[in-house]
Design a protein around this nucleic acid. Structure first.
Lengths: 215, 215
DNA sequence: CAGTAAACTTACTGACCAGTAAGGTTAAGG
DNA sequence: CCTTAACCTTACTGGTCAGTAAGTTTACTG
C-alpha cells in the first residue's frame, strides 16, 4: 500500500480528480440540484479546495464542459481527418461520436443540453461546443452535396438543414443505444448513414418526395 | 373597464392562469432556478394560492407538462388522423408538430428534456409524454415500411431506430427554425420528409449505403 | 533540519426559497 | 341583510447550500 491513499496531490492532478467527480454528480443530479459538498466528498476532498482551484460552482461546471467538449470534438476530428472521401469522413466521425457516448456516458449527459437554466456564461460555453461540432459536420455535408452533383451555392442553407437533422438524429439515437446495449456503434453508424446520406443524395439529386395526392 | 382587472376568479380559470405563468417562467429559468414567488407574481396572485390549487412546485410543473403534452399529442393526432396513407399522415403530423412549436415556443422549451435533474415523478411524466409521441410516429413508420415492401417482422427494431432518428431530427430542427424565422413549417416538413422517408425506403428496399472502399 | 509555500481542513454566514399558519375579504344564495 | 364558503393575503419558518475566514499540516528546497 504505497500511495493508494495518497494525500497531498499536486494541483493539476487534483483538478482533474475534481472534474471527474463533478461530471458524475452533474450527470446524476443536473446542474442546480448538484451540491458542491457532494462533489467534494466524491472527490475525497474538502469544499474550499474546489473554490480555490475552480473559483465557483459555475467555474467548475464550465471546466467540465470545456474538457469534455474538447475531448469529443478531438475524437470526432481525429477519426474524420484521415478518410479520403467526405462520406467516409462522416462515417468515421459518427462512429467516433457513438463510441465516445458509449464510453463516457456521464460526459455526454452533461454536455447534452442543460442549457436552458444556465447562466449566460455557461450557455455560451455550451453553444460554443455545439457549434464546433456542427461546423465540422456541416463542412462534410456541404462537400458531400457538391460532390454528389448538387448546386454549389444553394448548398449553403441546405447543408445547414441537413446538418441540424443529422446531429439531432445522432443525438436522439443516443437514447436508442441505451435501450439496445448490444448493438455496436458500427451498426448504428451504418444505419444512420444509410438513412441520411442516401436520402440527402436523393433530395439534392432532385428525387423529391411528393405528397402523392390521394385520388 | 368592466372586468379587465377582475379580482376573485373561479378556481378552474385561476389554475389555467397559474399554469400559463408557470410555463413562461419555467421556460425562461428552468425548473430549479424558477421560483414559485416569481410565478405567483407573474400570475398576479399570491404564493399560497399556488400551493392550495397545485399542491407543490413539483405538482405545478407536472400540471404544466400534462397540459402541454396533451395539447401537442392532440395536435399531432388530429392532424395525422385523417390522411389516407402513412406518408401523408406522417407529413400532416410533422406539420402539426412544427406549427405547435412555432406557436407555443415556451411550452416546447418546457417539454423539451429537462428530465435529467428532476424527481422520479416528473421524469416519469416526461417519459410518458415522449413515449406517446414516439409510439404515434413508430406506428406510422412501421406501416410505411411494410407498405414500401419491407419485411413485416424485421420492421420492429428498424421502425424503432428510424423513429428515434426522425424524432431527434425534428427536435433539432426546432433550433434551425429559430435561426430561419421566415421559413414556414410546410417547407421544413417537406424537406424532412424528403430526407428521411426517401432514405428509409432505400434502406428497407435493400439499397444500402456502402463505405465505397477507396482505391 | 530549518523555512516556506503549496495542499488541505474545520467551522462558520448570509441569502434564498419551498412551504405554512392564521386570518381577511368578497360573491352568491337564502 | 346575513351567512357561508370560496377566494385571497400578509408574514413568517426551517432547511439547504454557495461561498469564506482563519488556521493547520505536509512536502519540497536549500
Amino acid at each position: 500500500m504505497n500511495d493508494t491513499r495518497r494525500r497531498r496531490v499536486p494541483r493539476p492532478v487534483r483538478e482533474q480528480q475534481i472534474i471527474d467527480a463533478a461530471i458524475r454528480v452533474f450527470a446524476k443530479r443536473g446542474y442546480h440540484a448538484a451540491s458542491v459538498d457532494e462533489i467534494a466528498e466524491l472527490a475525497g476532498i474538502s469544499k474550499p479546495m474546489i473554490y480555490l482551484y475552480l473559483d465557483s460552482k459555475e467555474g467548475l461546471f464550465i471546466a467540465c464542459l470545456r474538457r469534455e467538449a474538447a475531448r469529443l470534438v478531438a475524437a470526432f476530428q481525429d477519426a474524420a481527418g484521415h478518410a479520403p472521401s467526405p462520406e467516409l469522413r462522416l462515417r468515421a466521425g459518427l462512429l467516433a461520436f457513438f463510441t465516445f457516448v458509449t464510453e463516457h456516458r456521464d460526459s455526454w449527459v452533461v454536455l447534452h443540453r442543460q442549457a436552458s437554466e444556465l447562466s449566460p456564461a455557461i450557455a455560451a460555453e455550451l453553444t460554443q461546443a455545439r457549434r464546433a461540432v456542427m461546423a465540422e459536420v456541416a463542412g462534410l455535408v456541404r462537400v458531400g452535396i457538391v460532390e454528389s452533383g448538387g448546386p454549389a451555392q444553394a448548398g449553403e442553407q441546405d447543408a445547414d438543414f441537413v446538418t441540424y437533422a443529422l446531429v439531432g438524429a445522432a443525438d436522439s439515437l443516443t437514447d436508442w443505444m441505451a435501450k439496445h446495449p448490444d448493438e455496436p456503434p458500427e451498426r448504428i453508424t451504418l444505419r444512420l448513414m444509410n438513412m441520411v446520406w442516401v436520402g440527402m443524395r436523393n433530395v439534392l439529386g432532385g428525387e423529391v418526395w411528393a405528397p402523392a395526392e390521394d385520388g
